[in-house]
Design a protein around this nucleic acid. Sequence first.
DNA 1: AATGAATGAGGATTCATTCAT
DNA 2: TATGAATGAATCCTCATTCAT
Lengths: 216, 216, 216, 216
Amino acid sequence: MPKDTFKQLPEEKAERIIESAADLFSERGFSRTDVAEIASRSGVAKGSIYNYFESKDDLFMYVCRDGLARWREAVYGDIDKTWDVYHQIDHMFEKGAAFAQEHPKYIRLYLNVTASGMEEYAEELTPESEGHFAIYFKSLLERGIEEGIVRSDLDIPLTSFLINSLYLMFLLSLVSRHFQIRIKEYLGMKGSLDNKADEVARRVVDLIRTLLKPMS
Amino acid sequence: MPKDTFKQLPEEKAERIIESAADLFSERGFSRTDVAEIASRSGVAKGSIYNYFESKDDLFMYVCRDGLARWREAVYGDIDKTWDVYHQIDHMFEKGAAFAQEHPKYIRLYLNVTASGMEEYAEELTPESEGHFAIYFKSLLERGIEEGIVRSDLDIPLTSFLINSLYLMFLLSLVSRHFQIRIKEYLGMKGSLDNKADEVARRVVDLIRTLLKPMS
Amino acid sequence: MPKDTFKQLPEEKAERIIESAADLFSERGFSRTDVAEIASRSGVAKGSIYNYFESKDDLFMYVCRDGLARWREAVYGDIDKTWDVYHQIDHMFEKGAAFAQEHPKYIRLYLNVTASGMEEYAEELTPESEGHFAIYFKSLLERGIEEGIVRSDLDIPLTSFLINSLYLMFLLSLVSRHFQIRIKEYLGMKGSLDNKADEVARRVVDLIRTLLKPMS
Amino acid sequence: MPKDTFKQLPEEKAERIIESAADLFSERGFSRTDVAEIASRSGVAKGSIYNYFESKDDLFMYVCRDGLARWREAVYGDIDKTWDVYHQIDHMFEKGAAFAQEHPKYIRLYLNVTASGMEEYAEELTPESEGHFAIYFKSLLERGIEEGIVRSDLDIPLTSFLINSLYLMFLLSLVSRHFQIRIKEYLGMKGSLDNKADEVARRVVDLIRTLLKPMS
DNA sequence: AATGAATGAGGATTCATTCAT
DNA sequence: TATGAATGAATCCTCATTCAT
């Protein structure tokens, strides 16, 4: 947890630190990131970082948690719960893609938490970040079934898991070299993915709709 | 690339080195792994590691490539191409689960390649490891459609991507703390996942079958 | 030398600072003591310490000098110069023991001044703290000889040195782990020294008397 | 405890490290001593120090223990147990003075162990270094009494303590600024003590003899 | 005068890699 | 070829001191 001094910081300065830290952690991973560089990039002294955070670990945890919250907010923030399931999923993919392209670093942080040797962080962050989604998707599907726009013979929890997995893989494809190469292998794409993100998003949502909708 | 001296090593010794390295890289990640410890665990001198490999990077790359190959072999090695698509997918999940439980380290290595700062490795390894799967899944689906057991209104490349994503998420759930917590959130499970791996595998395959089979 | 601001401080606040500083310096030594902790323990701001003292060195010096003065006062404060030499020595040991047990920190500070790298402090403090004793003991012995209760064949300065050395070693044994272990080795004692301090003091004074009194 | 690598070092190199470490620790104390400087002074790389010792603590402990052993050896090494008590004490003071003048650092290390915050070291080293002396002095006095050259009305353990205290104070006076100033206050000396060490030693031994010998 | 945030030099320790034996 | 000691750059964190409020 950040120290009180961090909370009292001018927002602009705090933001600079978080940005630099997120940049570096997401580019290089936890171990390869140097606290001194975070400091110099954000224009504060090395010692100051330790006035704000207990340790590099503490800073990392804060940055991850903060990044994941921004991600959630960007995606869910302006969702209208009255929309139908496909509309909401479509919105999530669209907003997710926009967020991934604007702030790839916050999504890359996700990969830091999944990495080997980061179990300690996962233990704390994963339930926070995934719990919401799990409940959200499940209730979305249930309502869809009630409304007759989702087939009723599905294993709901697993279908939620499926949708989220697709969602995750899609976003990671926009921010991680590995997942980018991977998706291009599957979709037979060449060149940058960036200008096709929306198109791919639409295809994914279409596929989901095709698979979920009741048989006519 | 390993040096020639490595290739001339007694198989048993080479294996000991690869095992120790895979153990450590998969538990701690690249940066946190100490070459000296790999050496001592495998009973060779630290200097010897540098007789066999150009650098820690080189060793890491070799270990990852080797681990991914073992994974592929375990899953595809004894597949019968005449089986139908659902049978083959079922086999993949079953073998995959067994492999993940017997050699979690080789699957954890996958996460190392996806991590931040590992782009250099992804660049080389990802095409090798994912290319196979992509082609394999696509041809599987195409044959399924021809045989009339897979609905024909699907976006084949994307459906391949979907199946592989589910497959990946399932296996990662067996070996990574993050993905384990995540899947348990979705499936509402408590306690260890290990003794329910087969059950979950079956559920996933069932879902895939439900979604893919043509509407009656 | 403390700044003027320190002298104008409410006595209670000044005392709190001195106490905390003496506590910490005496427990951890100069280098291992953190100015910030002195401040927080005495309930003042870190910056305030620097309003009162030029530097950590300055504070340390003041605390040592003050502590040694308290020690002197406790031991000599209520001595009656008309008592005979043995009575006065007995009183010194008794009061010294009581002081050592009540305020071990002030005696531990002595050890900080004797330590390596502390020559600068010794240069200033030692003459102040030892000068008194030297003169005092010598005149005490001289009077004892005149009165015929101390043998006249002694090397007076050296005998003063001897008595003070014993005195010092006795008190240090009450406050320093090293000297405590040491005296227990010599006296064959087990367990805590604290409840036997008076007894040992008496034995030491007895020995001094035995050695110094004229042959009958 | 030093690592095996240290034990395998050429004696000359090991000696250089011990010397530099003893020099610095004894001049500046533990905390103020920089491992990097020990390394550079002994002409080895900083990292090498950590090949030889677990930590700065470990090195410090080794150096202290080694120094105290050298001191003991210098003083006791060539003592003839058939000599009478005064002869042996005389020899100890003489050799002790010579050692203190030749290798003041090893005696200064003693002060590091007595310092605040060094209890951990005292716990281990003090029994080793003082145990010998305690037993030695007591048996010396007992034999002296049997032989009729030491008065029989003494508190033997305490007298041993007294002699050792004098011995210690005398040696510390030769190597520590504080104790040097102190002894000069008592003995009324000016200028350097060094060229008068033998004379003072003789005076101390004379005083001991005067005090201990039976009354005629 | 009081505060406590900001600073950056300093210091212990780690570890990939080299190299003499 | 095998070894493991030697190296020193890299990195986390501490802390005395300053200074703006």
